[in-house]
Structure formats: structure tokens, C-alpha cells
């Protein structure tokens, strides 16, 4: 078996030397995808550097969720290449599972394992995928739950938690795998308004700690506060790419101006 990739540092071992900021961690080149007649991803070229926080915004149906899901191949693409840490996405199988374990994913609908407790949700990956001992996984999971502020809910089932708590558990579950990059697919869109901030606060904190993040969101406040770069998508295309300051104060394209005028005037 040719296994060319270097061995990954074990999560409980010494920290691997962090790669220099500025090197591409995720790159998409000429990515195309259709859903039937609908061209959902059109000529997508995008790179995300180590430690960068990229926020993807755009109207519904613009392909931003599909883009996010394509990066860990929950959606397949028709053509083009997607690389994570220099490695092209493999076909479905063991290699893809290994790559996915390095890419954290947070879903709009949380998707916590409904039959497992909060703690078991967080430890499942580390134990079964990383081979951590139960006690080590638990200790680390409790630390992560503490960090996202739901440690006191560790023994409960997901359905007993509020949406905001569930989403924070989902973030902890993703973090437990020590991902190289975190994907957030509209993480606050299914939340009641008063719970959005508790999730965004965790995400802002993560961004400050240097996590590489790709965030699909409608939360413009988060984009302003935490993004290094904003990508605006419409009709499956990347229409504009700029710093948040630049994008929000001085959008270049008419499409972006129109979009911003609709959401920011109220």
C-alpha cells in the first residue's frame, strides 16, 4: 500500500510544529458542479492559507453551502481539483476518511449523534478514529466542553440541550479531532436569535487562537469582526473577494452592492 502522506502527529503527543502562516492549506482550482441543469459551482478558484479565517457570504442558492461541503467531499464535484494540505481529495474510502478526520465540520442543523450523550459525541471520533484511550479522550473532551461553556451538560442527550448549546457541542466535537481546518456551514442559521451570539463568541475565540476557518454565514457582524477575507458568491460564482473592511464599505460589484443594501439597511 502506497501511503505517501507523512504520519500525522498524534493528538495527545507533542504539538507538531505549526506550518508557516501564508502557505495554502485549502485550495480549489477550476471547480465545477451541477445539480441537474443547475450550475451550482462555476469556475471556483480559491485558496485558504494557514490560520486564515475566510467568510463566505451570498444570497440563498448561491452555492456557498455546496462549496463548503465539497471541501470534505460531502458533495462530489464534476471537475476541477480540491486540495487540503497539498493532498488532492481522494475517492470515497479509507484515505478520504483520514482526510475528513483532519477537517472539522459544523453543520447548520448541528447533527449531534442523537443516541449518544454530549460527552460521548465528543469522544467518539478521538477513540474510534484516533485510537485514544477512553480516559484520555474523556479528559480532553471535558476540557473542550469547558471551553465552549457546556461542560455541565456532558451527561445529557443532545435533545435535552438548547440549539445554541448543541451547536457549541458540535464545535467541541469537531475540535476534538485536532482539525487542520474547520468548516462552518451556516452554523447559526437554525438558531433562535438569542442563541446566535453564544455560538459566534466561540467562533470568534477560535479565530483569535489562529484556527484556519471557512465560514459560510449570514452573520455580517461576525464577518466584520473575525474574517481575514470575505468571499461573496452569487449564482455559483465567486463575484468578489476582499477584506471585510473593503467589502462592506466599498463593494465593487453591483451584485454585492445590491445584496448588502438589502441586508444592511434594516
Amino acid at each position: 500500500m502506497a501511503d505517501a502522506s507523512p504520519p500525522r502527529p498524534s493528538p495527545d503527543g507533542p504539538e507538531a510544529p505549526r506550518q508557516v502562516a501564508g502557505a495554502a492549506l485549502v485550495s480549489l482550482r477550476d471547480v465545477q458542479k451541477h445539480f441537474g441543469d443547475l450550475h451550482v459551482l462555476r469556475d471556483i478558484d480559491l485558496t485558504v492559507d494557514h490560520g486564515e479565517v475566510l467568510v463566505v457570504i451570498g444570497p440563498s442558492g448561491s452555492g456557498k453551502s455546496t462549496l463548503c461541503r465539497a471541501i470534505n467531499r460531502l458533495e462530489t464535484i464534476d471537475s476541477g481539483t480540491i486540495e487540503v494540505d497539498g493532498e488532492p481529495l481522494p475517492e470515497e474510502g479509507r484515505a478520504l476518511a483520514r482526510l475528513r478526520s483532519d477537517v472539522g465540520m459544523v453543520f447548520q442543523s448541528f447533527n449531534l449523534f442523537a443516541h449518544k450523550t454530549v460527552l460521548d459525541n465528543v469522544t467518539l471520533g478521538p477513540i474510534k478514529v484516533r485510537g485514544l484511550s477512553r480516559s484520555a479522550a474523556r479528559a480532553e473532551a471535558m476540557g473542550l466542553l469547558e471551553r465552549v461553556g457546556v461542560a455541565n451538560q456532558a451527561g445529557k442527550l443532545p435533545a435535552q440541550l438548547s440549539g445554541g448549546q448543541q451547536q457549541r457541542v458540535a464545535i467541541a466535537r469537531a475540535l476534538a479531532m485536532h482539525p487542520k481546518v474547520m468548516l462552518f456551514d451556516e452554523p447559526t442559521s437554525a438558531l433562535d436569535p438569542e442563541m446566535i451570539n453564544e455560538v459566534l463568541d466561540v467562533m470568534v475565540q477560535l479565530a483569535k487562537e489562529g484556527m484556519t476557518m471557512i465560514v459560510v454565514t449570514h452573520e455580517m457582524g461576525f464577518a466584520r469582526r473575525a474574517a481575514d477575507r470575505v468571499v461573496f458568491m452569487a449564482d455559483g460564482q465567486i463575484v468578489e473577494e476582499a477584506s471585510p473592511e473593503e467589502f462592506f464599505t466599498n463593494p465593487r460589484s453591483d451584485r454585492a452592492k445590491d445584496f448588502l443594501s438589502k441586508i444592511l439597511t434594516h
Binding site: G93, F107, R173
Partner: peptide, 15 residues
């Protein structure tokens, strides 16, 4: 079982 459960399982690297 909602599809999201399988997606979440795959996303943490379970085959």
C-alpha cells in the same frame, strides 16, 4: 435516521 447523522459520522472520519 436523518441524513445529517451519517454526514456527521463521515465528517469526523468514520468510514
Amino acid at each position: 435516521v436523518p441524513l445529517g447523522q451519517a454526514e456527521a459520522a463521515r465528517a469526523i472520519g468514520l468510514s
